[in-house]
Simulated assay, not measured.
Amino acid sequence: MKKTDRETGPSTGESGVILRDQYEHAGATDLVLDDGLVLELTRRYAPGARAVDSVDETGGEARAYMVAAAEGRLVVKTQRPHRRRVRTSLEREALFLRHQAALAGNPLPVPRVLGHGRATVPAKGAAGGQVDAEIEYTVMTRVPGDAMQRVPIDGAARRAALGELGAVLRRVHGASQEPLLSSGLFPGDRAPGDLRLRLEAPAMEAARKLSATPAAALLPESPEALVRRAVEELPEDTTRVALHSNPSAMHTFVDPDNGAFTGLIDFGDAYLSHPALDLRRWDRHADRVAVLEGYRRAGPVDAVFMRVWRVACLLAELTALAAAPADAGGAKERATVIQSLMKERA
């Protein structure tokens, strides 16, 4: 397997940070399984599977077949061969979810893995025709509700849902990490300085783009100087845990009728780094604050955690500003958030 930038094995002690995606099999056939095959795979773990209701491809790298079964609403998840990348792993996701299922206390609102495996199957390619190929798949339960990105909620209901998400992330991060670390399946921070590398490289790229736009004048110093000053505050060596990676509106589920939080899906991009990074993935800073509040209600955090969280949020705001510098109203709001976070650090 060709390695991506700075991606190494878990035993080397070198950096395991993946800075950019590489799709190793971009020319591979995009396999589409017929309903009969999906039901055959599902029945290996859920004999009561009856019908394939729909297919979801919104995740890009995965194809999810929604299955009606006597055991409940199920999902058969496969990776699309031409979109396979080091960052994503169904095997890693299955291990991570099974680890969470074994935690003491109330069950976490995440998918429950019924089975994971590989099979050689006949399938049709997206362009037609029959092919035989090996697929990897996971059969899991389906979290009720719908993704927040498709459910318009705001105000107190939104803050409550995000607070519940924060509490779930706190339990995920607080679980024993040894079985995950020893599995060898999780890429991520392995050497001192990896956290800085992970945050500084993409932020500096965004800063250079922002410097070429009028929006840079909204900041009290150059974007590049701001990034350099921010990452100087990061600790050299930190706590690392298995992160969800992207617990955002796409993967956070709520009840469409009342906005209540129902669960978190898609752990296939999990990686090892500082836990604060899982709290930065929302576009609005007010949403990040709501997630943090729920996280802190579920358990205390120390000053280092808060420092990493502030730096990560500041760089997220700068990156978003660089992506849409012509949005005058949005640019001013983001610049205000950046300056506020800078004052908190002072």
Rank of each mutant, 00 (worst) to 15 (best):
E93D: 12
G60T: 04
T12C: 09
D146M: 09
V86K: 03
S340R: 13
A161Q: 08
G174E: 03
R334M: 03
A62Q: 13
G27I: 03
R98E: 15
L218A: 09
V254Q: 06
V52H: 06
V301K: 01
H173S: 01
A320L: 13
T239L: 13
E224L: 10
Y137M: 11
A161P: 06
R281G: 00
L97A: 12
D21L: 13
T4P: 07
S11Q: 14
P179F: 14
L19I: 03
E205P: 00
V254G: 10
R80P: 04
P202I: 02
D257S: 14
F305D: 09
T262P: 01
G128N: 02
D146I: 00
T262I: 01
S273N: 05
G163Q: 06
A207W: 08
V254F: 13
T252P: 07
E134W: 01
R284K: 10
V32Q: 14
Y23K: 05
E233F: 02
A26Y: 11
L108E: 06
D194F: 00
E71L: 04
E221L: 12
T238Q: 00
E61G: 01
G129H: 07
A276W: 00
L74P: 09
L162V: 04
L108F: 05
A127T: 10
R92N: 10
L33T: 13
F267V: 05
L315W: 04
A270K: 01
D302H: 07
A201H: 04
G193V: 05
D34K: 07
P256E: 14
L180H: 09
I135R: 05
P256C: 14
P300Y: 01
A207N: 07
E71D: 12
T8C: 10
R83N: 08
R171Y: 02
L318G: 05
L37Y: 01
A133D: 13
L165F: 08
R228C: 09
P47W: 11
R198M: 07
F261C: 06
R284F: 11
V168C: 10
N258R: 07
V143D: 11
S15M: 02
T78H: 12
A286E: 15
K209Y: 04
A62H: 15
M66H: 15
A49E: 14
V254H: 06
R297F: 00
M250H: 15
E232Y: 05
L210V: 06
M342E: 15
P187G: 11
R63Y: 06
V337R: 01
E7C: 09
R297E: 14
S222I: 03
D189Q: 04
V139S: 13
P152C: 08
L341E: 13
T238V: 10
S273P: 00
S211E: 15
L341A: 08
R98G: 14
R280A: 11
D257I: 00
D269I: 01
S245C: 02
G27D: 15
V231L: 04
A207E: 11
R288Y: 05
G145V: 03
A126I: 08
P325H: 11
A286L: 09
G117P: 03
S176M: 01
E134D: 14
R158V: 05
Y65K: 08
S183H: 11
T88Y: 12
T29R: 08
A346T: 09
P220V: 01
T58Q: 14
K2Q: 12
L31W: 14
P152E: 15
G105Y: 04
Y137N: 12
